[in-house]
Amino acid sequence: MKPVPVLICVSLLLVMAGCTTIDEHPAGTVTFTDDCGTTVEIAAHVERVVSLAPSETEICCAVGGCPLLVGRTDYCTYPAEAAAVETVGGPRTFSVEKVIGLEPDLVLATTVTDSIRVQEIRAAGLPVVVFRLETIEDIYRNIEILGTLLGTSDDALRLVADLSAREAGIESASRGGEPVSVLYVLWDEPLYVAGNNTFQNDLIVRAGGVNIMSDVEGYATVSEESVVNRAPQVIIASREHTSGLSRISDRLLSRPALAEVPAIKENRICEMEPDLVNRPGPRVISALEMFSRCIHA
């Protein structure tokens, strides 16, 4: 996902990208500089965590921090243990009062989280750590940092090692073969697809595919004609959250105008759990595996 960068964040990142630091103090607190360059004082033994982003919730749980979670957003539905935690609202519409009321000693946010609300929480004296998640490497780093902050460094390092091994495996397997043309469809009416500089594009390329819409910047609506004309061999589509509608792959398959597209003709169309690719969390490697399986089927 391409996050909505906060202005301050962007300017600071130019200087500080990747130089997140943790200093331990004897007084039982650690000073931590987050991805936005804000210095935060955090208790050495964090006991109550509120996550303001689904990806942070997933990472937190992946490093064994699930029992510490006391608050989450409406969209933090994975893993199942997290879903049982009390919610504070949507990622951009959550209640600041509720967050403060939960008395967390650590609040996790991303650059997509509403920055005004983040300011409010900080003003109330609570430590908020903001992560920037744009690439797979960002995710690894996030996992490691969270492991340190929550005191589960070993789990975190093991997880990163595991994920990067899986990633390397996929990338090496896809190397050398004939490139496969791929289209990633987020919504079918109108055709809303992933172009260049998107997480999906990144995954397609890492999985050894070629995005047929790489000349389009970001996410865009395109005509059916351009799809027919560019004849993708594989289509990957986001499964919508709505349960009632017919499946997006069925709709695409039954669309007469697209009948001549090779991917449709040969039924090489996969559905992706959108959370897998939309959330830059530990499951992104699972997404990459699915992309790879789909592309090299």
Binding site: D74, W187, D188, Y192, T221, E224, R255, P274, N278
Partner: peptide, 24 residues
Amino acid sequence: LFLSGENLHQIVFWLLGGISGRGW
């Protein structure tokens, strides 16, 4: 729209209007 969360773009597309990909 507020409630829709991740279906937001579908509604927005509908509201913007269009005749793309509608067919016979």
